[in-house]
Amino acid sequence: SEEKKKAKERLERLGASSELARELLDRANGNAEKAERLLRKLL
């Protein structure tokens, strides 16, 4: 979806690899905010 694509791009801008961004979104069930929080914990 367009929303998921935007979320993935945002995670990548924050420093996630394409693969990591995809994994985070999967774990967050597509929830962009939750995926971002997970990423911030990792960085």
Rank of each mutant, 00 (worst) to 15 (best):
S18D: 10
K6F: 06
K5W: 07
E9L: 05
L24R: 00
L43S: 05
R27I: 13
E12V: 13
L24A: 02
L24M: 06
L24H: 00
K41Q: 15
A7D: 08
S18Q: 10
L24K: 00
K41W: 11
L39N: 00
A32I: 15
E12S: 04
S18W: 03
E36W: 01
L14W: 04
A35M: 04
L20T: 05
L38T: 05
R13L: 12
E9H: 07
E3P: 09
K6D: 10
K5D: 13
A21V: 07
R40H: 13
K34S: 10
A28V: 11
E33A: 13
L25N: 00
L43V: 07
L39G: 01
N31G: 02
E9A: 12
R40W: 06
R10F: 09
E3Y: 06
G30A: 03
L20E: 05
G15V: 04
K34F: 14
A28M: 10
N29L: 10
E12P: 01
K4M: 15
K6T: 11
L14Q: 06
R10I: 08
A21W: 10
K8I: 15
N29R: 09
D26V: 07
K4G: 14
K4V: 14
A21N: 00
L24S: 01
S1Y: 13
E36I: 10
L43R: 07
R10K: 09
N31D: 15
K5H: 10
K5A: 12
E12H: 06
K5N: 13
E23P: 00
E9T: 09
A28K: 01
R22G: 11
K34E: 15
L11D: 00
E9Q: 11
D26I: 09
S1R: 12
G15N: 01
S1K: 11
E3S: 12
L42G: 04
R40Q: 13
G30H: 05
L11M: 05
R27E: 09
L11S: 01
R27S: 08
K4A: 14
E33D: 14
L11N: 00
K8N: 08
K8H: 14
L39I: 01
L39F: 06
R40E: 15
R37A: 15
R22V: 14
R13M: 13
E3A: 13
E23K: 10
R13T: 09
L43M: 10
K6G: 10
L25S: 03
L38I: 13
E2K: 10
L14S: 03
E33F: 06
G30D: 06
K5Q: 14
L43D: 05
L39R: 00
L20G: 02
R27G: 05
L25P: 00
N31A: 04
E3L: 09
L14F: 05
R40N: 11
L24C: 06
L39M: 03
A16V: 07
E3Q: 11
D26L: 08
E19L: 06
N29Y: 08
L38S: 06
S17N: 07
R40D: 15
E2R: 11
S1Q: 13
N31T: 01
K41Y: 10
K8V: 15
A35C: 02
R13I: 08
A28I: 02
L14N: 03
R40C: 14
L43C: 13
L39K: 00
A32E: 10
L14H: 04
K8T: 14
L11K: 01
K6S: 12
R13K: 13
R27T: 07
A35Y: 02
R13P: 01
E2A: 12
L39W: 04
G15H: 01
A16M: 03
L43H: 06
D26E: 14
K5I: 12
A16R: 02
L24W: 02
D26R: 10
R22Q: 15
L11E: 01
A16L: 06
G15L: 05
L11P: 00
S17H: 05
N31V: 06
R22T: 14
A7Q: 07
E19Q: 09
L43I: 11
L38M: 14
E23V: 12
S17D: 07
A21F: 06
L42T: 06
R22M: 15
N29D: 12
L20Y: 01
A32R: 06
E19V: 05
K4Y: 15
K8F: 15
R13V: 07
A32K: 04
A21Y: 05
R40L: 08
L11A: 01
A35Q: 00
K5E: 13
E2V: 11
E33S: 10
E3I: 10
G15R: 02
E9F: 00
G15D: 01
A32Q: 08
E36K: 04
E23F: 05
